[in-house]
């Protein structure tokens, strides 16, 4: 079970996470946050909690927790 906490208010829309995800479970949300940046959305069922999106995020918007 993977729990992704995404803080959309911190996101600056660089989309490094979309590029880095090996399972392609991060996609553009089509929505913008208050600062005007396009945010992303996550498919938690496909996620394997590899931490790639957390590693490349320059704005600390993603927290991943995995419990087996």
């Amino acid at each position: 079970m993977v729990k992704i906490t995404y803080n959309a208010a911190r996101c600056k829309g660089c989309h490094y996470c979309v590029n880095a995800c090996p399972k392609k479970c991060i996609t553009l949300s089509g929505d913008t946050n208050n600062a005007g940046y396009e945010t992303v959305k996550f498919n938690e069922t496909e996620c394997v909690a590899c931490g790639s999106c957390y590693t490349v995020c320059p704005d600390y918007a993603i927290v991943i927790e995995k419990e087996d």
């Binding site: 909690a49 931490g51 957390y54 590693t55 600390y60 993603i62 927290v63 991943i64 927790e65 995995k66 419990e67 087996d68």
Partner: peptide, 9 residues
């Protein structure tokens, strides 16, 4: 397996 967390310091 133990819980795995990715969070900032």
């Amino acid at each position: 397996m133990a819980a795995k967390t990715f969070n900032i310091p």
